[in-house]
Design a protein around this nucleic acid. Structure first.
Lengths: 208, 208, 208, 208
DNA sequence: CATGAATGAGTCTTCATTCAT
DNA sequence: GATGAATGAAGACTCATTCAT
């Protein structure tokens, strides 16, 4: 229920409180190092230092660096997908305009709660291991969105999966543009309404 | 016609013909290694090997690895922006539906001419140096798109810059979803029409 | 008693006892490689090999090769200047002949305690970083020598600083000629007396 | 007779004027690079660049880099020893005071004609190959000095060789202190008189 | 359990030297 | 003769990982 310090299956189960705290510290440290130094300089030494533990400790909880990074990404994406999926469930049966508004709200709430974390993890998600995780999460959300769209009383989507995919692509793309600093200040400020507008317009264009 | 081997300004101007071929080989090798191994394994040794030259040769033309990668990215993005900007110019004064169709056509023609290259370079564009280049190109295209939108006879955009930004974000985002393998086969096949639909729907929603 | 392993301020303070031994081994290895191979071949690999550690270990204690070499030089020169300065202090107030004898005794005792080390470090002292260290030490000894000379009851030196400089130049020059193998066996054997003779003669010539 | 561009015995005899000019340019370039960049960065590429020729050309005249550097040093030391030896010959039979004055005059005239060259070459003389050359020249001058000292009408030296060695050590040591920037301005200005004083005082102290 | 010293494979980069043009 | 592109061995340095304490 409290999924905070996802205990890695591998080396050790965090029966003790210390473990939980250490893992949490490591996750936070990863984000910080990622943000400050970039993926290329996100070394175990630096992570350990920032977390206030020794390098050896990392290996007490994770078999190697990649798994640690993957765990951090996974936790982030799990939280994200949970948030999105939750919003989808809530929006089921409502008109598309409300769906859109509801989803965008959930998205912004999540992404904006820790923009640095979200931005930092794009790099991790681009690498081999990260990509698999991202893909899995992607494919987890897709049917839920499709389901939601199908439940809309004011629209019928012929190519449901395709529509969901495009919807998701826009839904994730605009925030990314902003988080990766390609957007102007105005863009950042209006992200919510613009995202709603674009998504709704698209849905109305392809729906009957 | 294919201006591939833009001799880098830095180390040496190719007095001999060999140089041109070497530089071309290096650029191609970078893409290949990037595709096969990923940015993390895109080392000078591997690049040289794939290009069929020795490591030292790289440094005859580029002061360091980053500059080589940046050069490859830059050339790609210059080609891309030229293509997009050209399409914008051509579409000026036409109705938004035609604009959209024209731009999407140019985009697909370019991105699809060498999808691997396009996909491989996302990683480079995410890194420090690459980001600057990408940002520059981004800011180069933005006003051109804004100009084009403004010239539409069948729509008026109040917040022109913002609209252009959102337009561009969607315009670049959908192909990226596909190139990074997040899209289904159906998504890939319908990318063009879906992109047109989404862009046009957005423009009509925000335009008067 | 032998304070060899002054832990470098930089990378890490030797919490464990191993560190002290490692640093000592590195310093000794530097001298050996310098002696056997020369500065040009005094590479990190060879130093590590001779010290019986891996290359990486060097970087646990020194940020780069230059700093390691500088540290070795610094320690040598600090010992040397301490010895010379100590002798100067002891000789204060004594007649010039005794001063000279005292200083030469201290010099020979030090330089001869490890002639190879002394000889090997000339090369390090010639390089950029080393020169700064040598210069600093030089300028540390100069006023002490001047002070000593001034305290002589049997001579007055009009141009005290100048005299101290020339004195020091001869004082350091003759041993160097020997350590760098330019002197004959006879030269080496008589170094002490000849040095005394030359220094005393000079002092008497410029003193009143 | 005109020993300027000592034609290297090896690859080619400078029958043509071009060769002579090229070799001269290379020698000058070596000194310049040595001065500006230091021995560690005195690479063939840089030498060639500064000399206005291509790397390949160096190898037309010298079998390798070491030989080039050695040639430059050799030429310098030959000029130097010729100057010193000439002065010795001229001073033969004169009283020690005049000998000293004469030699110091010759030394300063030579060393000061191109202080940078003199200073730059210390580094070359410290390396393996250079040391041999320096040693040879050293041993060439020693007997000539001994001869000169022996001819003095106003002094008899019991340990002639030893005296000559110590004399030479001081004779070369003081200028070096200055050229290597260890001396103050005053030291540099008074080098001639101080050198004379020190040498003469020494000779008078050991001579009868 | 935690620590951090040590490891060594793997990177980037330089540079003397060669050789086709 | 001259050129400069190409070579590749060698050097400095990094970093994930291990293991004795």
């Amino acid at each position: 229920m409290t999924p905070l310090p996802t205990p890695p299956v591998v080396r050790k189960s965090p029966v003790q409180a210390r473990s939980v705290a250490t893992i949490a510290a490591l996750h936070i440290a990863v984000i910080q190092v990622l943000t400050r130094e970039g993926l290329g300089r996100c070394t175990t030494t630096r992570i350990a230092q920032r977390a206030g533990v020794s390098v050896g400790t990392i290996y007490q909880y994770y078999p190697n660096r990649d798994v640690l990074l993957a765990a951090v990404l996974e936790r982030h994406l799990e939280g994200f997908s949970a948030s999105v999926i939750g919003a989808c469930k809530e929006a089921e049966g409502k008109p598309v305009a409300e769906m859109t508004k509801h989803l965008v709200g959930a998205l912004l709430r999540f992404k904006m709660s820790d923009p640095q974390e979200a931005a930092a993890l794009y790099a991790v998600a681009a690498e081999k291991t990260g990509k698999n995780i991202a893909l899995t999460v992607h494919n987890l959300m897709l049917p839920v969105i499709a389901n939601m769209l199908q439940s809309a009383p004011d629209a019928v989507f012929e190519r449901l999966t395709l529509t969901a995919e495009v919807f998701l692509s826009i839904f994730l793309g605009l925030p990314r543009t902003m988080l990766e600093d390609y957007g102007s200040t105005e863009f950042a400020e209006c992200l919510g309404t613009q995202l709603e507008t674009a998504l709704l317009a698209y849905l109305q264009a392809v729906g009957r």
